[in-house]
């Protein structure tokens, strides 16, 4: 059965919503604000987080705004299978928390993220009753694979890899060139970061290998060869595939500044640029995903500015 929402309608609505994105003037005002209260005033003036009941903390206002955005995207998406892929990270976060909470016998319910694909109530109920069969098969499988693990790090690795595997499988059966290209960068980013982080922390090659995921444009054997190499040698191991010039530049920059957070940001910017290029496609998923990612980046920037006050 065809989904009832068409791309022209969804993109029309997104274009109207895009008008509410914070512009350069507002960003300057937020940066110049003396404290969090001034930031809240500026955000309120521009209608940011207008649905928030509690306008006393920036983090709550941001959470309220993102709740509205998530609801909008989920109700508006002409292809929910594709847009749901962008919420699987929240599911991964929730699963890791719940599995680690179960392992360490801690209550983590207050820390859970509300916008995953799996409704929070179903997820919490499944963990309380230890009954997984009412969850989606793919999520049930992730949980079953992780139940016996005793090391929180291993749980994180297992869940992250399983979620990336769900994304890869979904894209095999539900093809979309733009979303495929985006997630190829995400898979590559996972592997590049594992390589750099592993080398920086002098992890064993088996530990680094356990973090690698297939599906990227860089061959995994190239990443494996880079293990143990010095920072200025790393760029030659990412110089394959269609995104080689971007990866090479990012890894070369890392060899100069040695800041892992900068690598993460640059890879994230590169992945975002793939979606951003398609923001004006009136008949594709690009504008919908672009809006979601822009709102997430906006939320993240507001939180960073607030944290510095």
């Amino acid at each position: 059965m065809m989904h009832e929402i068409s791309y022209p309608f969804a993109v029309g609505r997104i274009k109207s919503l895009e008008k509410n994105l914070l512009d350069a003037t507002v960003w300057q005002q937020l940066t110049d604000a003396n404290n969090e209260n001034t930031m809240l005033k500026i955000l309120k003036e521009h209608g940011y987080g207008s649905q928030s009941e509690d306008y006393k903390s920036v983090s709550k206002v941001v959470a309220s705004e993102m709740k509205v955005v998530d609801h909008e995207i989920k109700s508006l998406s002409p292809d929910p299978v594709l847009t749901n892929l962008f919420y699987l990270n929240e599911d991964a976060y929730n699963l890791k928390l719940l599995l680690k909470g179960r392992l360490l016998k801690r209550d983590v319910t207050k820390l859970l993220h509300p916008s995953g694909v799996v409704p929070l109530n179903s997820l919490m109920e499944a963990f309380i009753n230890e009954k997984w069969n009412e969850l989606p098969v793919s999520i049930e499988s992730v949980i079953k694979q992780s139940l016996e693990l005793q090391d929180p790090f291993e749980i994180s690795v297992k869940v992250d890899k399983a979620i990336l595997s769900i994304i890869r499988e979904t894209l095999i059966h539900h093809r979309n060139r733009l979303i495929e290209n985006y997630f190829i960068v995400r898979f590559d980013a996972n592997n590049i970061l594992a390589m750099i982080r592993g080398n920086a922390l002098r992890w064993t090659s088996s530990k680094i290998n356990s973090l690698l995921v297939p599906g990227g444009s860089i061959e995994m054997k190239m990443i494996e060869r880079a293990i143990g190499k010095s920072d200025d040698q790393l760029s030659q191991y990412v110089s394959s595939g269609s995104n080689r010039f971007a990866y090479r530049r990012i890894v070369e920059n890392y060899a100069e500044d040695h800041q892992l957070s900068n690598v993460e940001k640059r890879l994230d910017d590169f992945a975002f640029s793939i979606i951003h290029e398609q923001k004006n496609d009136s008949f594709g998923i690009g504008p919908v995903v672009n809006y979601l990612l822009q709102k997430r980046r906006e939320a993240s920037s507001i939180r960073i500015i607030a944290a510095k006050k």
Binding site: F9, A10, G12
Partner: peptide, 14 residues
């Protein structure tokens, strides 16, 4: 019809 869908999307918010 195509233009109408786009118009409906825009006017639903504006």
């Amino acid at each position: 019809q195509i233009a109408g869908q786009a118009a409906a999307g825009v006017t639903s918010d504006q």
